[in-house]
Structure formats: structure tokens, C-alpha cells
Amino acid sequence: MLRLSGARPGPTLWLPDDRPIAYSLGGRDGLIVASHGLAGRLSPRELDAVLAHERAHLRGRHHLLTGCAETLGRVLRFVPLMRELPGAVRLLVELAADRAAAAGHGPETVRSALLSIHAAGGGDTALRLRWLARHASRPARFPERVRAIAGGALALFAAPVLTVGLMFTAGLVSCW
């Protein structure tokens, strides 16, 4: 009944693994996969924040966005901006899920869980931690669904539109 109402996307499958694992599988029914090692390493509040992060991926259809970005990146690999699109979209959906989790559990809880899972804190993790510190506590101006749709559309269409514009400009300049 909860799934039909849309109140709670997907069940959680718990893996008997000592490593801290958490990810979601998109699709019609959606599924969150987590490990006992994750539950053992995090406090109950941190674990709830991580699961909220994964539910945000399912609610926001982030798997569809990243799949479209991967496809565009492979098909239009000859365009430099399109080669960068998959990585950029992956980072943006992680930031969106972090923000959703922080809205319900507080940015410090999400930061703490992220640090516990990714102890090194390099690369995208460091960027996510900085972003959480600066932006997660600000109140949202628009509903989450509107932001998700607008952000997804922008992420998918910005690079192709910019590429077409640059090609058009290059064509005009070369004809001159």
C-alpha cells in the first residue's frame, strides 16, 4: 500500500557483508541495497540519513538521468562537453540526494555518515562535504519536485544546446 501511495519508494535489501555498502537500483519498483557492515559502522541517525539519500535517488529518478547522460556521453563522445556530461550529472545527482537527506536529518548527520563511509574524503567526496557545509542548511525556495525536474532538464540539455550554439557560431565565423 505504501508503494502505491508513493510515500516510500522501494524496499531495502540487506547484504551480509562487513564492508559499508549502500546504493540504490532504479526502475519501476526501485530497490535500496545496504550491508550489515554499513549498519554496524554508522549510528542509527547516520544510517537513516544514508537510507534517505538513497530514497532521494529513487524519488528523483536519478538513475534515469545518469543513464541518459551516459548514453549522450558515449554517442556524442567527439564533443568535448558531452564527454564530461556523465561525470557532471553523477556529481549533481549525488549533491541533490545529499541535500534531500540533509533536509530531513541535518547536514552534519549526512556529513558524518559520508565521512564514516568514505574515510579518505578525496575527489567528489571532498566536494560533497564542502557543498553540504555551505548549502544544505539553506531553506529551499522551490519544491523538491520542481527543482529535480528543472535540474534534470538543465543537466540533459545544457551541453547539447551549448554545443549546437558553438558549432553554429564557428560556422558563421568560418564563412566570414
Results as ranks from 00 to 15, higher is better:
F142T: 06
L64G: 03
L15G: 00
D98W: 05
R74K: 13
R138M: 07
G27N: 07
S112M: 06
G10D: 00
A148G: 07
L95V: 08
R130S: 13
G73R: 04
G122H: 14
A7H: 02
G10I: 00
R111Y: 04
S43A: 13
R83A: 13
R59Y: 07
A119S: 15
G26A: 00
A119H: 11
G26W: 00
A159N: 09
L38G: 01
V161D: 06
R141L: 12
L38E: 04
V50F: 05
P11L: 05
A113Q: 02
R55E: 13
A100T: 02
L72M: 15
R147Y: 03
G152N: 04
R147D: 15
S24C: 12
T169S: 10
L154A: 15
G30L: 00
G40A: 14
V164M: 11
A69I: 08
V79M: 14
A153V: 15
A158C: 13
L92N: 14
A34E: 02
G123E: 05
T12D: 10
S35G: 08
A96N: 09
D124K: 07
L4D: 11
G106T: 02
E94G: 07
A103T: 13
A7V: 10
R134S: 07
L85E: 10
R83H: 07
L47Q: 10
L64Y: 10
A148D: 14
L114W: 07
R90G: 03
V33H: 01
L91C: 07
R130G: 08
V164F: 13
P139D: 04
A140V: 08
F157S: 12
L154F: 15
A56H: 03
T66P: 03
R141E: 12
R128M: 02
A150I: 13
M167N: 08
V89D: 02
A153N: 10
D48H: 10
I149M: 13
P139M: 01
R8A: 12
A103H: 11
A22T: 00
F168Y: 14
L47K: 04
V93N: 04
L132W: 00
V75E: 06
R8C: 11
G106W: 01
E84P: 08
T12L: 06
V33E: 00
V93S: 03
L129A: 01
G104H: 07
A113W: 00
L65N: 05
A49C: 08
R130I: 09
P107T: 08
G27M: 05
V146H: 15
R3G: 02
A69K: 01
L65R: 06
R83I: 07
R3Y: 09
H118L: 04
A158I: 12
L4E: 14
R77P: 12
L95G: 08
C175L: 15
H36Q: 15
T12C: 08
E54A: 04
R145A: 14
D98C: 08
A136G: 07
R138A: 11
D98S: 06
L42R: 02
R8T: 11
V173C: 11
V89A: 11
A150P: 08
I149F: 14
L47A: 13
T125E: 07
R28I: 09
A96L: 12
A39S: 09
W131Q: 05
R61Q: 10
